[in-house]
């Protein structure tokens, strides 16, 4: 069953000169529940913009987005954001300690005390972080640790769908591996992942299906196996343009 479905989605925004620019054009695709789905494309192709729509950080200009079969605008935005977690590209962590960050979502909802250590420790365990980090200031963490705190913060609300915007783009290969393993583990527990990536290797390791964007248009949708058969698309992802010669 499709858990996320885009139907002829167009997104227009105004640039600083107040001109309309089309960021996504007539985009349709669907994501099956329980899968890892990749959103790929060269830089500036509209991947982050598409991801933001799924969390309703923006509204599309035309078309429909269905989450669990229900049009996104029919959802109470609070329920939607409980169901759909968003892990931002930059480790958009809040100033403060690891605990303050991982408990944020629960704390603002009044579900847990903001200093409920057992819950925080449980979350750190889920992302493989040492309990000693609990009271550390997030500033002092490594990039990989920050991204794991970022993931733990998203996991705290136990979302069914997790959106990730280039989760490993600033990480070294070892830290990348850790995050990818976590995605696989959490996926095995039944969560759906939509991961923005421009690494073919990563898509191959993680995703079963993917959509490729170029300048806001869909240029490919299908299984990962089909993706690797489409040379012009893989060239686009490697070189950032379709013909592949520089």
């Amino acid at each position: 069953m499709a858990i996320v479905q885009f139907e002829n989605v167009t997104l227009r925004k105004k640039d600083e000169k107040n001109n309309e620019v089309t960021i996504l054009s007539d985009l349709s695709f669907s994501v099956e529940a329980g899968t890892v789905f990749a959103l790929a494309g060269p830089s500036g192709s509209g991947k982050s913009s598409a991801l933001r729509l799924i969390n309703r950080l923006d509204d599309c200009s035309s078309g429909n987005i269905y989450i669990d079969g229900k049009e996104i605008r029919a959802w109470d935005v609070r329920d939607l954001r409980n169901k759909v977690g968003f892990m931002f590209q930059e480790a958009a962590l809040f100033e403060g300690t690891v605990m303050e960050n991982v408990l944020y979502g629960l704390c603002i909802r009044g579900l847990r005390k903001c200093e409920h250590e057992p819950t925080a420790l449980e979350l750190l365990k889920q992302v493989g972080l040492s309990p000693e980090l609990l009271h550390r200031n997030v500033e002092s963490l490594s990039g990989g640790q920050k991204q794991r705190v970022n993931l733990a913060r998203t996991l705290a609300l136990n979302p069914d769908i997790i959106l990730m915007d280039e989760p490993t783009s600033s990480l070294d290969p070892a830290a990348t591996r850790t995050i990818e393993n976590l995605i696989q583990e959490l996926n095995a527990q039944g969560r759906t992942f939509i991961v923005v990536s421009h690494s073919l290797e990563q898509i191959e390791r993680l995703a079963s299906a993917c959509v490729v964007l170029d300048a806001g248009r869909k240029v490919f949708a299908g299984s990962t196996r089909e993706l690797f058969a489409a040379r012009e698309i893989t060239n686009l992802l490697i070189n950032g343009k379709e013909d592949g010669d520089d």
Binding site: N55, R81, F88, Q89, A92, L93, F94, Y104, R109, L157
Partner: peptide
Amino acid sequence: RVRVEAALSLGAA
């Protein structure tokens, strides 16, 4: 901006 939106997506009012 990123932090504000991260908070919103975590359910903040």
